[in-house]
Amino acid sequence: MTLTETTGRHAAVSAVPVCVSAGRAAQELTLKRGEFDLAVHLGLIGTEPASGGARPRIRQQEIDRLRALPGFPESVRGQVRTAGTAEGATLLGVSTVRFTGLARIGCISPVAFYLNRYRAVVWLYLVDELLAFAAREPDLIAGKSPVGMRVMLEAGTDWRARNWRSRRIDRLLGRTEDPWARAALQASALDPVQLAEVVEDPYERAYLARVRPDSAFGRPGSVSGREVMMRLMLADDPDEILWRRVNLTLELDQAREIRPAPRPGYDPALRVAPDRLASDRLSREHMVPERPMAVRTAPHRTMPPGPGQRAGQTGRASRRPAGRPGAGQGLLVRVGLRKPWRRDR
């Protein structure tokens, strides 16, 4: 072997990034495992995607970057410091009842939770966000509760689980560009009945369950903890359910245009076109906001038949095969807000 070949081989080996496991990374960053998992969830620690179902790993270069920050390790630990209701109320200088009321109406949103000895959900809040809220909204901290706040609490409003779901799904959406994985995240907030109404094709539902991303890290926990997690993942408010159904429908439209869901006879060589992923990223500005406004549907226009089309067959129908469930139906029909139009009426 010549000197040039030896040098080239060593250069290729050195170019491969050195990665370590989550436990090793948490130890080097002097973080507890819960703090480390939350830092990854918040995007404070970058991860390397893994294939074949393996756990994501951390680059040694990322660990060195964090260790070089001024004030390490408090500079990292302080960003993931959380507080429960009692500690949060003390930080804000309010009663626990007032603090809980502020959380229930969505003024402050939980970032994590755990189960206490009675298997009750204990919500956790980022300390930095609590202090920022106190500086931003001093009138809600001191003095009498506003009338709107009292009305919402008397009506039983509690948006803590909803806001936690939204934060979690939004974080996971920011980690993936795959259209089917994004649709799976929207589908994860719907129960099986709601999901079957939006996604009628059983092969598509099975594919969504298979490609749904999970949190990058996090230990499985007890059986009761997993059961609570599954309950908290499901939307339980009509507005939130509608929001997820509409966004799932829009994500599915983009996913189906890039590649179909696998079914018997599926060719595994079928891959996502990179140019379609780039255009898909630009189209996300049309996603429905959390408080959905009235959905307008564009009037149907009959286009002249193109090459290979019969008279009366439109370009819109040609993009969606008639054999696929929901083909040719409008958005309101597909999310369950309008009954399908029948010709024999």
Rank of each mutant, 00 (worst) to 15 (best):
T249A: 06
V80N: 05
G101E: 14
I169W: 08
V13W: 15
H10M: 13
I105Q: 11
V127S: 03
V121Q: 07
D201Y: 05
L185Q: 06
R59M: 02
E87P: 00
D280T: 05
R342Y: 08
L3A: 12
L277F: 03
A132W: 10
A25F: 00
V223W: 07
T249H: 09
L332I: 02
G23I: 00
A322I: 08
P274L: 06
R301N: 03
R212E: 10
L31T: 00
A187H: 07
R77K: 14
R345S: 11
R98H: 13
R320I: 09
A187S: 09
L31F: 02
Y118R: 15
T157N: 00
N116H: 08
M293I: 04
G71W: 07
Q60D: 08
R226W: 06
S21H: 07
D37E: 14
E74Y: 13
M152P: 03
R175V: 08
L332A: 04
M1V: 12
Q61H: 14
R175M: 12
C19N: 10
T85S: 10
P192K: 05
V18K: 15
H10F: 14
D344F: 12
A89C: 10
L153M: 02
E177W: 15
A83M: 05
A181R: 15
S166T: 12
L185F: 02
L190T: 02
S14C: 08
Y125E: 10
D178A: 14
A187G: 00
D214I: 08
P340A: 11
L282Q: 11
L3S: 12
R165E: 05
G156M: 08
H10T: 11
Y125F: 15
R65L: 09
R245W: 00
V76T: 04
S145I: 00
S21C: 03
G78T: 07
A273D: 14
R296K: 12
L130K: 04
I58V: 15
L208I: 09
R117T: 12
S145T: 09
F36K: 01
G156Q: 08
P304T: 07
A86Y: 09
